[in-house]
Amino acid sequence: MTDSGVHVGGRSSRLTLPLAVLAGGFVGSLARACLAAAFAVADGGFPWVTLIVNVLGSLVIGWYLARRERSVTSRWSLHFWAIGALGSFTTFSAFSVEVVELIDGGARGLAASYVIASMVLGLVAAWLGDRVGSAS
């Protein structure tokens, strides 16, 4: 009885964090899918939905991780929010492929400005979130 309880407990704790990532990933992917459906970008247009999603997610993850170091939050929370939800809300593959599509469509200037905007704004957002989250 006790053995079986310990065994089940051990097994469930090994599954807890992957399940948190799975659940968080669902929430983050759902949010991005809804935004993408609500605000469709025209073919060949500036992919500002992905840009906003990536910058917003970078801001929040910076804030969340900095706050986390100053308070007691569970590993479940880290895996759900940072790795699952924010990790999959933001996307590097869509960013990269959108750049390629812009280049393929002949819009090299737009592609370059999209790359620079994503890199600079994403980094500044993560830094800003980190600073705000670290401030008392």
């Binding site: 990933g25 983050g28 992917s29 991005r32 990536n54 997610g57 970078s58 929040v60 993850i61 910076g62 991780l65 940072a82 790795i83 924010l86 990790g87 999959s88 809300f89 933001t90 996307t91 590097f92 593959s93 869509a94 960013f95 994503s118 994403g122 980094l123 957002a125 993560a126 830094w127 979130g129 980190d130």
Partner: peptide
């Protein structure tokens, strides 16, 4: 692939 890749982790890891 959208959920597999991540932009936010790249950004905060760069900061860190």
């Amino acid at each position: 692939f959208g959920g597999f890749t991540t932009f936010s982790t790249w950004a905060i890891e760069t900061v860190r």
